[in-house]
Simulated assay, not measured.
Amino acid sequence: MSNDSVYIDRFLEMMAAESGASPNTLSAYRSDLEQASSFAKGLLSEADRAGLEKIASAWSELKNSSVSRKSSSLRRFFGFLVEEGFRADDPSDSLPRPGGQRSLPKILSHEEVAKLFETIEVRLNTKNPKPKDARLSALIELLYGSGLRASELVSLPRKSVMMDRPFLIISGKGGKERLVPISDRARHAVKRWTGFVDGDEKYLFPSRTGHLSRIRLFQIIKDLATKSDINPTKISPHVLRHAFATHLLEGGADLRALQTLLGHSDISTTQIYTHVDSARLVELVNNRHPLSRHDLTR
Rank of each mutant, 00 (worst) to 15 (best):
246 T>E: 01
254 D>E: 08
222 K>E: 04
227 K>R: 15
232 P>F: 02
242 H>R: 15
252 G>K: 06
244 F>Y: 15
250 E>R: 13
247 H>C: 11
225 A>V: 01
256 R>T: 06
231 N>I: 00
242 H>Q: 15
227 K>T: 09
253 A>Y: 03
227 K>F: 00
246 T>S: 11
237 P>G: 11
247 H>W: 11
256 R>S: 01
225 A>N: 02
239 V>K: 00
224 L>G: 08
224 L>W: 09
230 I>N: 02
251 G>N: 11
240 L>Q: 12
248 L>I: 07
254 D>F: 07
232 P>V: 01
225 A>C: 10
249 L>C: 06
229 D>E: 15
229 D>C: 11
228 S>C: 00
251 G>E: 04
219 Q>T: 05
241 R>E: 14
244 F>D: 14
225 A>K: 03
230 I>D: 02
244 F>E: 11
253 A>D: 02
238 H>E: 13
243 A>Q: 08
240 L>G: 13
251 G>S: 12
221 I>H: 00
220 I>L: 15
239 V>Q: 04
226 T>N: 05
230 I>G: 00
223 D>T: 02
246 T>G: 01
240 L>Y: 10
242 H>P: 13
230 I>P: 04
223 D>Y: 08
226 T>C: 05
236 S>R: 09
225 A>E: 03
252 G>F: 08
250 E>N: 12
223 D>K: 14
255 L>D: 09
234 K>T: 02
224 L>M: 08
246 T>N: 06
256 R>M: 05
236 S>H: 10
244 F>R: 13
223 D>S: 11
221 I>A: 07
223 D>E: 13
238 H>L: 11
258 L>R: 01
252 G>I: 01
230 I>A: 03
223 D>M: 12
232 P>H: 03
238 H>V: 11
237 P>A: 08
223 D>V: 04
227 K>W: 03
252 G>C: 06
238 H>Y: 13
222 K>D: 07
256 R>G: 00
228 S>N: 07
237 P>T: 12
247 H>M: 10
237 P>M: 13
233 T>V: 12
247 H>N: 14
233 T>G: 10
248 L>M: 12
238 H>Q: 15
224 L>V: 06
256 R>V: 03
236 S>V: 03
234 K>F: 04
230 I>S: 01
223 D>N: 15
258 L>H: 03
254 D>I: 09
232 P>S: 04
236 S>N: 10
244 F>W: 14
229 D>H: 15
254 D>G: 06
228 S>L: 06
246 T>W: 04
237 P>R: 10
220 I>N: 05
